[in-house]
Write a protein that binds this DNA or RNA. Structure first.
Length: 197
DNA sequence: CGTACGATCTGCT
DNA sequence: GCAGATCGTACGA
């Protein structure tokens, strides 16, 4: 059930981004387990991708972990406020990553936890789209960057969950207009109307 | 050292 | 639909 190291070593990061749809993201925080079904992802495809932090081989303290072997987390701060969670993939120091943009609670218990963390009375499946909301619901922080996804704090499981893949779409990534010709690449996977059912 | 800005969210209009 | 929040990071001087 738990995805092992080998899963993240696959070369095609776009294929992984597609395959992660429907998998379950799990965090363990102070004994509190939170589970969310992944419903939206984006692929960032190495040094030739103008939208990637690693474009042109750029390597800084912030994105250093993108160059590590796949199967770890890359978490960074965006707009000074939002913690964005990525899964590093591939091996041979090729900086591939998948941004997790949307989840839905696995169970009503998970929904309860996420509502509290989000400061909301209710949470529908439409309320957990947006990468900043994902990290707030799952309690993921920039200090988690570099965390091994086969350790016991953050990991992903395959539960064979049914989602309505007839409504699964691919399209351009969000907020990467500066990426010129790469801005149009269909590296984002999402459900029509944000509704995976 | 100074400055500009981003893989965004929220609340108000 | 739009502005404001809010700050680490990158990069140039």
């Amino acid at each position: 059930m738990k995805l092992e190291k080998e899963y993240y070593l696959e070369e095609d990061v776009v294929a992984i981004a597609r395959d992660l749809i429907g998998k379950v993201l799990i965090t363990s925080r102070n004994g509190i387990i939170t589970q969310g079904i992944i419903t939206e992802t984006e692929a960032y495809n190495g040094v030739t991708d103008r939208a990637s932090h690693a474009f042109g081989g750029k390597r800084t303290p912030r994105n250093e972990v993108m160059y590590h072997t796949g199967g770890i987390a890359y978490v960074y701060l965006c707009y000074g406020i939002h913690h964005l969670f990525n899964i590093v993939t591939n091996t041979d120091a090729i900086p591939h990553a998948v941004l997790v943009r949307g989840i839905i609670p696995f169970s009503s218990d998970d929904q309860q936890i996420m509502q509290e963390r989000r400061g909301r009375e209710t949470l529908t499946f439409r309320d957990n789209f947006g990468p900043g909301k994902v990290t707030q619901s799952m309690h993921i922080h920039t200090s988690d960057s570099g965390t091994d996804l086969t350790s016991g704090t953050i990991w992903v499981e395959d539960r064979g969950i049914f989602l309505n893949t007839r409504k699964l779409r691919s399209g351009p990534r969000i907020g990467v207009g500066y990426a010129k010709e790469d801005a149009a690449l269909p590296y984002r996977f999402y459900f029509e109307g944000n509704n995976p059912y």
